[in-house]
């Protein structure tokens, strides 16, 4: 299990159901363009995520996303001149009310999608994903598992090799002066003495870049040959344990439970109502050419409530999980 993943322990939902559910959520986030729908979507997804626990990755993404969304909100009105309601900032320069609204709604939808993905990572472990894929794509799922092992391994190897490269001549020789450890970082470069290279050599910046590139090249070279050497044994050990002699099976098994069926039925009913609503235009506010939206237009209809119910089950399960534990 990946670090930091706090999964529901007391309720098990089949990964396929999860995948379906999150997939519909993402589709809805792209289709819906109604401020009320999107706002309630955002609030409920935030509640779900706060129940599931905010990961450090999400914080990182948010740091990137917030300036980006502000940029969308600013740039869209500057470029997009469609729309009826014009707001003149200067004599000949105007932006439209519709473009601002479009920018806000788009960045809202993007935010929701990001949050859905983050929540998805919390709900479905990669092993459950593998279970879904391993039946159809056994080789690809094997490659994923192997790379999950290999990437951290190669990372730690790079670390070891890097350590040596802090020393001169790959650790074989370290020249140290009294209290002057900075000299450790100095490397010899053996660049042949053509005129062009001499010129480059004279420039300190270039020199340091070349040094850096050489060092990185060397580190990568050593790491790759080390890893390839070790990979030979990995391959042998796979072969020795009967890899490829039969059709692979999986040790993971997930049974469809009653919860899954109830969940599926709920998804089916609510989604069909929402789709009906979308066909009639509920949840899709027309922005261009003219946005006629008033705050008082509360969408108090069956479609909106179906949408809210569609978003509630995971929140309910998470809350119940807490209640059961305490």
């Amino acid at each position: 299990m990946l670090k930091g993943t706090i999964k529901m322990e007391l309720t098990r939902i089949h990964p396929a159901v999860y995948i379906l559910y999150y997939f519909i959520m993402i589709v809805l986030a792209f289709i819906l363009r109604d401020p009320y729908f999107l706002l309630s979507f955002l609030i409920l997804i935030l509640v779900l995520i706060s129940l599931q626990g905010i990961s450090s990755e999400l914080k990182q993404i948010m740091k990137l996303f917030l300036p980006l969304s502000i940029l969308i909100i600013i740039i869209n009105p500057l470029i997009q001149k469609k729309g009826v309601h014009r707001i003149y900032l200067m004599k000949n320069f105007f932006i439209t009310y519709e473009a601002i609204a479009f920018g806000i709604l788009t960045s809202l939808a993007l935010l929701i999608v990001i949050l859905i993905f983050s929540s998805y990572n919390k709900s479905v472990t990669y092993q459950e994903m593998l279970y879904i894929f391993s039946k159809k794509l056994p080789i690809i799922s094997m490659i994923i598992v192997m790379s999950l092992r290999f990437i951290p391994l190669i990372n730690s190897r790079v670390g070891e090799v890097k350590k040596l490269n802090h020393l001169k001549a790959n650790g074989i020789e370290t020249k140290l002066d009294n209290n002057n450890q900075d000299k450790l970082e100095e490397f010899d470069t053996n660049i042949s003495d053509t005129k062009f290279l001499k010129k480059i050599n004279s420039s300190k910046k270039f020199q340091s870049i070349i040094k850096e590139a050489k060092i990185i090249g060397k580190i990568m070279g050593i790491t790759v040959s080390w890893s390839l050497e070790e990979s030979m044994f990995t391959a042998k050990s796979m072969k020795a344990r009967g890899y490829k002699s039969y059709k692979r099976t999986s040790y993971l098994s997930y049974d469809i439970s009653l919860t899954d069926i109830i969940f599926l039925v709920l998804i089916f009913i609510t989604v069909s109502i929402i789709v009906l609503g979308i066909i009639q235009g509920y949840g899709l506010t027309d922005i261009y050419p003219s946005l006629d939206f008033a705050l008082s237009d509360l969408p108090l209809n069956i479609y909106y409530f179906a949408f809210i119910i569609f978003l509630l089950p995971l929140i309910y399960l998470e809350i119940r999980e807490r209640m059961l534990w305490h």
Binding site: M146, R149, S237, Y251
Partner: peptide, 20 residues
């Protein structure tokens, strides 16, 4: 260098999955 997968249970299961 002999370990193929990333978790212990997956590694122990690996040969059994191989022989189907």
């Amino acid at each position: 260098s002999q370990i193929v997968t990333d978790t212990v249970i997956q590694e122990i299961a690996f040969p059994l999955e191989n022989i189907g």
